[in-house]
Amino acid sequence: MDDGLNTARLRVNYELAEQVFQKSRIQPTVCYQCRKCTSGCPLTFAMDYPPDRIVRFLILGLEERILRSRTIWVCSSCETCTTRCPNDIDIAGLMDHLKEEAHARGIVPPECRPIHAFHEAFLEDVARRGRVFEAGLLQRYMLTSGAWKSRLADGTLWSEVRTGLALLRKGRLPLLPRGVQARDEIRRIFQGVGDSEAPSDPVHASSGAENADASADPS
């Protein structure tokens, strides 16, 4: 690569937005950067990039940067951005698409792993019985994700145990799970959607994006 003065520091990959559109049917390129999404977002305080910049990065093709960002996991899917976008971009839907991509490639930033681990534990529970059994799910999440250790370290573990005991006392934590009778139907749904994530789709196949990210510095 030429590092001379006339070299652009950003290598743009316009194909990324097209790939995202093909897969999600969401068109980020119509964004004119009014930042209405960011103005209404309740979680910007915990994000590394506000939502409007995620959209901008997408248009520029900075895939790695987006997939490694906290923003996509911190998004609570409140749908305020999607509702208010004057160009009708489903921004919360984009965040979902990006989480799905990051999940498929196994690149979740460390501070967002609890969020990812909880989603995985939740879906395992659904796959098992067709319904979620909250008491079992919470226990398993705490133990398998190592969340109990961080709670112990920051002193919040006992407050959570107290809350759990209070719920139990008030009859709000049933001890036995209920499930769906037609387990095979649930199994078929999970198996069927698993196939759709085969690594032959265009976003997985892209190779230029990572190099572009490595040399990019739009800020």
Binding site: E100, L123, V126, R131, V132, I186
Partner: peptide, 14 residues
Amino acid sequence: NCCGATAAHSLNRR
């Protein structure tokens, strides 16, 4: 059955 909630729409669109 469960609607899949946030977990499903975060990890698998189908």
